[in-house]
Amino acid sequence: MTTVSLTVNGKAVSANLDPRTLLVQFLRENLRLTGTHVGCDTSQCGACIVHIDGKAVKACTTLAVSLDGASVTTIEGLAANGTLHPMQEAFREHHGLQCGFCTPGMIMSAVDIVNRRGSVLDEKTIREDLDGNICRCTGYHNIVKAVAAGAQAMGASSAPARQAAE
């Protein structure tokens, strides 16, 4: 067993874990944060995207014990005081989902794109940067629209992107 201490959605957590525990397992099974999904479990689909120290990462391909001292944000950490994050709101508004399974990963990815590239995003950039997120319901059309609108809203809202992600 290995001890690890990290911050998850702003709260300090410590655990004594079998080193095999993947970050996604730790989040879902130990912390009961089930918004982070397991899709392919082979690092392809992006349903498990969370932010580690502000950067989008696949939680199915990261060991929880390797995150001592790190700060993790999951989909549950985005909304503040009962108000959806602008990117969540944009996915709702533009119907950027069908079954919803890929949505937490899509939104965490989208916030990461804004953090890296700013709030004015063209369609090509969004499509390229969503390369690591797969939706199997339908096309990506509304997802791309939602990301563009969410990015704009993030730029306009008083809370800067970084702060919202951490």
Binding site: S43, R116, G132, N133
Partner: peptide, 9 residues
């Protein structure tokens, strides 16, 4: 290389 998430790790 890969996608943005792969490049972060």
């Amino acid at each position: 290389i890969g996608d943005p998430h792969v490049r972060h790790r």
